[in-house]
């Protein structure tokens, strides 16, 4: 494994991305929409509370965690909405890498630029890792920046208990450590999916399947069926790490030099 060759590939991906309006647009638009939605909701709660709908979870609901039980119903509704929105923020690390990776590989198929690259001393794992990192790192940065903007916005727009509930360890750790792990799964998934199809949209649709469990989980949280706390991380983390190991192993395994050359076209 030669780090400098991986770096060359990653840098090439970014040079190319810099000039790709579709990818660049998506990279800025997605976080922007997500953060605007979250802060817009908080602003509505603050400036037009009469417009806000019924409480999601009324006072005295059994099984409420203390942090939620102590809030007034309005704050509790906002806190639960925020919890759901945090899942939407996870859409950034989950869907951006797929998007970027599928554009990258399908672009390489169109220009037929993989064959000359494969004729250099680079190994296939170096090539794949360079590509996956090229798609994953910008998504991680986008996710972190979005979380930071959200936290700052909520600090100013909502009450202190709502803010503290938002930045409790599950989300801070989740965003710091888990969103990169999600991004890796997504990047590798994008590489695998785009090697099979020739249209970025098709690749993205296949990879969008990754979003289904995420959205399902977010709904459970919103309905108050599941309350997320630090202990949740204890069982979620090993699953995500196992998924990562599995998909990276699969990626490197199915892409032999000859497979890339004859299938990626």
């Amino acid at each position: 494994m030669n780090l400098s060759r991986i770096r060359v590939i990653t840098r090439k991906e970014w040079l190319d991305m810099r000039k790709n309006k579709m990818v660049l647009g998506m990279m800025f638009l997605l976080p922007l929409v997500m953060v605007a939605m979250i802060l817009g909701t908080a602003a509505a709660f603050r400036y037009a509370p009469e417009q806000v709908s019924d409480p999601l979870v009324p006072d005295g609901t059994p099984g409420l965690p203390p942090a939620l039980a102590e809030m007034d119903t309005e704050d509790r509704t906002l806190a639960l909405l925020n919890d759901q929105y945090m899942f939407y923020l996870l859409i950034i690390p989950v869907s951006l890498p797929v998007y970027i990776a599928s554009y990258s590989i399908i672009g390489e198929k169109e220009t037929r630029s993989l064959e000359p690259i494969l004729a250099t001393p680079i190994s296939t794992s170096e090539l794949l890792i360079g590509k996956i990192l090229g798609a994953v790192l910008p998504a991680i940065v986008a996710a972190w920046v979005s979380y930071l903007l959200t936290a700052v916005g909520i600090y100013f727009l909502a009450s202190r208990p709502v803010f503290l509930y938002l930045i409790r360890p599950i989300w801070t750790i989740g965003m710091l450590i888990h969103s990169p792990l999600f991004a890796l799964i997504s990047g590798a998934g994008g590489v695998i999916a785009s090697s099979r199809v020739n249209d970025p949209r098709a690749a993205q649709q296949i990879s969008a399947l990754l979003l289904v469990p995420l959205i399902g989980a977010s709904l459970l949280v919103l309905m108050g069926r599941v309350y997320l706390d630090t202990s949740t991380l204890l069982w979620v983390t090993p699953i995500i790490i196992a998924l990562n190991a599995g998909i990276l192993w699969l990626t490197v395994r199915i892409f032999q030099r000859e497979t890339i050359l004859t299938r990626w076209r």
Binding site: T111, R112, E115, P116, A119
Partner: peptide, 16 residues
């Protein structure tokens, strides 16, 4: 490392 290859399609990166 010891060969250079010009493939059937030039395979340059057009945006670069």
């Amino acid at each position: 490392a010891s060969v250079g290859l010009l493939t059937e399609a030039p395979g340059l990166y057009p945006r670069l």
